[in-house]
């Protein structure tokens, strides 16, 4: 699609969408949101990019092949599940680490659940983009 308005708009929109998707990913911990929805939003950014500037440019901008992103995400999600083994818990038991914990305040919680969600984010992001790019290139 050769439209200057779309192309210029996409430059900004793509970045904003990816940023917003990251916000959704992290917000998903206590409120509606999460890895799946974040991945969907993030991928729309690059889908828009591909529509405006072509898939070749979008692939260049992404730098990594979307399939690899998806598989790396699967790996991260799996590792987050396996991590529980170190503590002798069952597969996918959440492990928590509280940074700066004080008796009154829990500090910043970091958990394997978050890493699992990051994995989901990457899987969704990568697989949507691989499908869309492949379809765009076929047509």
């Amino acid at each position: 699609m050769n439209s200057i308005i779309l192309r210029v708009g996409t430059q900004y929109l793509c970045g904003i969408l990816v940023l917003f998707s990251l916000y959704m990913l992290i917000r998903g911990h206590n409120e509606p949101g999460g890895g799946f929805i974040g991945g969907l939003i993030g991928s729309t950014g690059f889908v828009l990019f591909a529509l405006a500037c072509g898939t070749a440019d979008a692939r260049n901008a992404l730098k990594v092949m979307p399939q690899n992103i998806a598989m790396a995400g699967l790996g991260i999600a799996l590792l987050a599940g396996i991590y529980a083994a170190i503590f002798g818990d069952a597969l996918f038991t959440g492990q928590w680490l509280f940074i700066n914990e004080t008796p009154e305040d829990k500090g910043i919680p970091i958990s394997t659940v978050l890493f699992f969600d990051i994995g989901v984010y990457l899987v969704v992001f990568g697989s949507i983009l691989s499908i869309v790019f492949a379809m765009e290139e076929e047509i």
Partner: peptide, 8 residues
């Protein structure tokens, strides 16, 4: 895990 390694 095998799938991830084999794919990458």
């Amino acid at each position: 895990l095998t799938a991830v390694l084999a794919f990458l």
